[in-house]
């Protein structure tokens, strides 16, 4: 069964860091990735991040897995982006389309930036349990019902995907074949989607009742078991993050 859970169980400092602090650091990291223009700084940031993840117990195969997921996208960025950002000498021309040295450079930067951002987001997901992430969002002001909805979605997506696979198999077992024109083949998917939607609706009806039966919304205020609590290390990381942001802003102000 597939899951959308990238969490790597562990007890490293990065794992233990309060998810609210991690969310802040992520926001800072993403902002910086947007604002920094030096490829060297971005590459250095990426290397530091990868080193940090390895030191905090994220296995190498997961880091390379993300690379494999990203490389097609990166390839297309490198291929297509130069057309949209001309500048510098022409390297290749094909009709009105031109590959320029400036364009290639811009594409390289963009690819690097996208990669850095992907690893930043993954760093959060690799080291944070879904439950704690949702808890953090709720503590930062998101209504509890939204948080519940988010975790239910994450919880049931694999089940829905599983249902999709099951119905496809059943169709094949009753004679469905990947033949004929593409359009006809795609139409074969339609009934599958119908079955999946019906299955999902049936399940969500049940789910609504199950939540009610277990007491959703029965008290004005829920209590929270194992609530998030900031510890000295969290405050330290928060302080460092803020200081870094201020320093960055000041440097950019001067530069």
């Amino acid at each position: 069964m597939i899951t959308f859970d990238l969490y790597v169980p562990g007890d490293s400092p990065l794992h233990r860091l309060d998810p609210r602090v991690k969310l802040l650091l992520l926001a800072e990291g993403l902002t910086a990735a947007f604002l920094i223009h030096s490829p060297w700084a971005m590459a250095a940031g990426l290397l530091v991040l990868l080193g940090l993840l390895r030191l905090n117990g994220v296995p190498l195969h997961l880091l390379t897995w993300l690379w494999r997921q990203m490389r097609v996208l990166l390839f297309f960025i490198l291929l297509l982006q130069p057309f949209f950002s001309p500048g510098g000498g022409v390297l290749l021309a094909w009709g009105p389309l031109r590959w320029t040295s400036g364009g290639v450079e811009a594409a390289l930067y963009l690819a690097l930036r996208v990669l850095l951002m992907a690893y930043l987001v993954a760093a959060l997901l690799f080291t944070t349990e879904q439950r704690r992430l949702v808890q953090a969002l709720v503590r930062l002001g998101m209504p509890y019902e939204w948080g519940l909805m988010l975790s239910l979605t994450l919880r049931f997506i694999p089940a829905i995907y599983g249902l999709f696979v099951t119905v496809r198999e059943a169709q094949a077992a009753r004679g469905w074949r990947a033949e004929g024109p593409l359009l006809k083949r795609w139409r074969g998917y339609l009934p599958v989607l119908v079955a999946v939607v019906i299955g999902t609706l049936r399940q969500s009806d049940q789910l609504t009742m199950a939540l009610a039966a277990r007491g959703l919304g029965r008290t004005a205020r829920r209590t929270v078991w194992r609530d998030l609590r900031m510890r000295p290390l969290d405050w330290l990381a928060l302080g460092a993050g803020l200081a870094g942001a201020i320093a960055f802003a000041a440097l950019r102000g001067i530069g």
Partner: peptide, 27 residues
């Protein structure tokens, strides 16, 4: 369908949180 959280212990805690039980008692 009735198991809607992501871990065994949370599943049990969820209903107690909904009844607003004191966090110390939940564990």
């Amino acid at each position: 369908t009735q198991l809607f959280t992501t871990s065994v212990e949370e599943e049990i805690a969820w209903g107690l949180e909904a009844l607003a039980m004191e966090p110390q008692a939940i564990g």
